[in-house]
C-alpha cells in the first residue's frame, strides 16, 4: 500500500518533469513574444514580463510579408492534404479490394520510398520540377509534399480499409448502388476516422516541412511560413528574437486549434496504423 503510493508519486513526478521540460520552450516562446524589446536581453531574465506588449505581432502583420507566407502555407498544406487524402483513399481501396498481379509488391515499393532520406530524393525532384517548368511555384511544393506524405497515408488508410467488411459494400451493390455509389455512401463514412487522422498527419507534415520548401522555392511570393519567416528574421548578423517568437506563436496556433478538436481521432489513427500496418 505504502509502496504503491510512493511509486505513484515518483511516476507522477517524473511525468511532470518531462512535461515541463518539453513544454518549457513553448512557454518561453510565448513569454518572449510579448516582452518589449528592452526587457528581452535583461540579465537576469524576467520570468514574467513586466509589461505585456503586442507590438511584435502588430509589426509582423503590418510591416512584413508574414501574411503572404501564412496564406501560402494554408494553401500548401490544405491542397496537399486534399490530394493525399483523395489519392490515399482510392489507392487503399484498390489495394484492399481488387486482386491484381504485383499488388503486394506495389504496396511495399511505395513504402520503400518512405525509407529513403528526403535529402536523397530532393535533388532529382528539383531537377524534375525545373524540367517541367514548375520550379519556384507553390504547385511544385504541393507535388513534393504529396509524394512525401502519400506512402504513409496509403498504409494508414489501408489498415482502416481492411477494417471495413466487404459484405457492407456487397450489400450496397445488391441494394442498387453503383461501385462509386457504394464507395461514397458506405465506405467513406466508415473510413472517416482514418481519413481524419490521415488528413491531420498530412497537414502537420506539410505545415512544418522545411527542407523541400527551402530547395524548391526561393521567392517571397510563394514561400511558406517555415522558410519565409526564417529568411526574413534570421540573417548572418542579427536574429529578430521578438518577431521570431511572435511568428512562431502564430504558426503554431492553427495546429493547436486543429489538434485540440481532432485529438481523439489522431491517437486512434496512430493506434490502428501501429497494430496492423
Amino acid at each position: 500500500m505504502q509502496r504503491s503510493m510512493l511509486q505513484g508519486v515518483i511516476v507522477n513526478l517524473v511525468t511532470w518533469t518531462l512535461v515541463l521540460l518539453i513544454a518549457f520552450p513553448l512557454l518561453w516562446m510565448i513569454i518572449t513574444s510579448v516582452k518589449p524589446q528592452t526587457e528581452l536581453f535583461r540579465i537576469p531574465p524576467t520570468w514574467f514580463p513586466e509589461t505585456i506588449t503586442f507590438e511584435h505581432y502588430w509589426r509582423l502583420l503590418t510591416e512584413t510579408p508574414f501574411l503572404t507566407y501564412f496564406r501560402n502555407s494554408v494553401v500548401l498544406a490544405t491542397t496537399t492534404t486534399i490530394f493525399v487524402v483523395a489519392l490515399g483513399t482510392l489507392g487503399a481501396y484498390s489495394l484492399v479490394r481488387f486482386k491484381y498481379r504485383g499488388r503486394e509488391t506495389l504496396a511495399m515499393l511505395v513504402l520503400f520510398t518512405y525509407l529513403l532520406p528526403s535529402v536523397v530524393l530532393i535533388i532529382p525532384l528539383y531537377l524534375m520540377m525545373v524540367a517541367i517548368g514548375l520550379s519556384n511555384t507553390l504547385v511544385s511544393l504541393i507535388l513534393a509534399h504529396t509524394t512525401f506524405a502519400l506512402p504513409y497515408a496509403l498504409w494508414l488508410l489501408r489498415s482502416f480499409m481492411e477494417g471495413v467488411p466487404e459484405d457492407l459494400e456487397s450489400a450496397a451493390l445488391v441494394d442498387g448502388a453503383s461501385r462509386m455509389g457504394a464507395f461514397r455512401d458506405i465506405i467513406l463514412p466508415q473510413l472517416l476516422p482514418g481519413i481524419i487522422s490521415t488528413a491531420l498527419f498530412t497537414f502537420i507534415l506539410s505545415w512544418n516541412e522545411y527542407l523541400y520548401a527551402l530547395v524548391l522555392v526561393n521567392s517571397d511570393s510563394v514561400a511558406p511560413l517555415t522558410t519565409g519567416v526564417m529568411s526574413m528574421l534570421i540573417s548572418a548578423f542579427n536574429i529578430e528574437w521578438s518577431l521570431l517568437m511572435a511568428a512562431s506563436v502564430m504558426m503554431s496556433l492553427p495546429l493547436i486549434v486543429v489538434f485540440a478538436f481532432l485529438q481523439s481521432y489522431l491517437t486512434s489513427g496512430f493506434g490502428a496504423g501501429g497494430v496492423k500496418g
Binding site: P165, L168, S170, A172, L173, V174, D175, G176, P189
Partner: peptide
C-alpha cells in the same frame, strides 16, 4: 448484369447493416 439490376435482394450472414 450488375447486382443492382437483377431485381434480387440478399441477406448476408453478417447482416451487413450500414453502421452509420
Amino acid at each position: 448484369v450488375a447486382p443492382g439490376k437483377r431485381d434480387i435482394a440478399m441477406v448476408f450472414q453478417s447482416y451487413a447493416l450500414y453502421p452509420h
